[in-house]
Amino acid sequence: MRNSFVIGMTFAVALLLSVMPMPTMLELGRPMWLAMVLAYWVMALPHRVGLLTAWVAGLAIDVLYGQIFGQHALVMTLIAWMMLLLHQRIRRFPLWQQSLVMLPVLGIAQILLLWLNSLTGSRPPTLLFLLPVIVSAVLWPWVFSVLRGVRRRFHVL
């Protein structure tokens, strides 16, 4: 029970970071906090965190952003699915290589989000929509290290 609470709290912190106010200039490069936390837990504990968790987390971010219900749920489920396919390989990589793997995983998710947004008529006009992918990949080693520390500190199995 305590393990589920710790995992849930990391998702709650990621949701808070996702909606935390930022300066306008930095808003374009807001890291994909929820996607990174989801990717970590799917990679670390694929038997506990999977597609259902990703779907629920995506619905939560849809509610927080006030966007079409299920849009982010589909994207988060895609991220979880890709991480489930790759988790045994990625775990063995050094952090800088994991960051390089996160680029296409998060990039595909962001492009799917762009496509879903364009279906509703709210497509961003520039390629700056890919900036969060780059920022998230750069932050991945730190997010990974913090979450691994939390996992070890609270003995999450």
Rank of each mutant, 00 (worst) to 15 (best):
M82I: 12
H47P: 02
V135G: 01
P124A: 08
V138C: 10
H47R: 11
R123K: 07
L100K: 10
T126I: 03
W142Y: 11
T126S: 15
L64Y: 00
W115E: 11
G66K: 00
A60F: 06
I90S: 01
I111W: 14
A54R: 08
P141T: 09
A54D: 04
P94H: 03
P125G: 12
P104F: 04
R48W: 08
M83H: 04
A109S: 15
S122K: 10
I90V: 15
Q88H: 15
A54S: 05
L103C: 05
L103R: 08
V63L: 09
A109P: 06
L59S: 02
H87K: 05
V135H: 06
H72N: 13
H87W: 11
L100M: 15
V105F: 05
L51M: 14
W81T: 03
P46A: 05
L100I: 15
A80Y: 13
L78D: 01
L128K: 07
M76A: 13
P125L: 11
L103T: 12
V56G: 03
V75R: 02
F129P: 04
V135D: 01
A109V: 06
M82S: 12
V105R: 12
L128C: 05
W96A: 03
T77E: 09
A54Y: 08
Q97M: 13
V135N: 01
G70P: 04
Q67C: 11
L116R: 00
R91S: 15
I79G: 04
H87S: 06
L85S: 14
S99G: 06
S118N: 12
I108W: 09
L131C: 01
I111T: 14
L113K: 05
S122I: 14
G58W: 10
I61A: 00
L112F: 12
Q98P: 10
H72I: 02
Q88P: 07
G66W: 00
H72D: 01
R123Q: 12
L139K: 03
L103Q: 05
L112I: 15
L51A: 10
A80M: 05
M76N: 14
I61F: 00
A109K: 14
L86K: 08
G107Q: 12
V101Y: 12
R92L: 12
W140Q: 01
L85M: 15
G70Q: 03
A57C: 11
Q97I: 08
L127W: 13
L113E: 07
L139W: 04
A109L: 06
G50V: 01
S118R: 11
N117Q: 15
F129W: 14
Q67H: 08
L114A: 14
W142G: 10
F129Q: 08
Q88C: 07
Q71R: 11
P124I: 03
M82R: 09
R48M: 13
L103D: 06
L113I: 04
W115Q: 13
L74Y: 07
L128T: 13
V49P: 06
L119K: 07
H72V: 01
S99H: 02
L100P: 05
G121W: 05
L130F: 09
L52F: 13
W55D: 01
S122C: 08
P46E: 08
V105Q: 08
V135W: 05
V49T: 04
G50Y: 09
L131E: 00
W115F: 15
L130S: 04
Y65M: 02
S122Q: 13
T126A: 10
P125M: 09
R89C: 03
I79Q: 06
G50H: 10
A54F: 09
L127N: 07
T53C: 09
L95W: 13
W55T: 04
R92H: 10
H87D: 09
H47A: 10
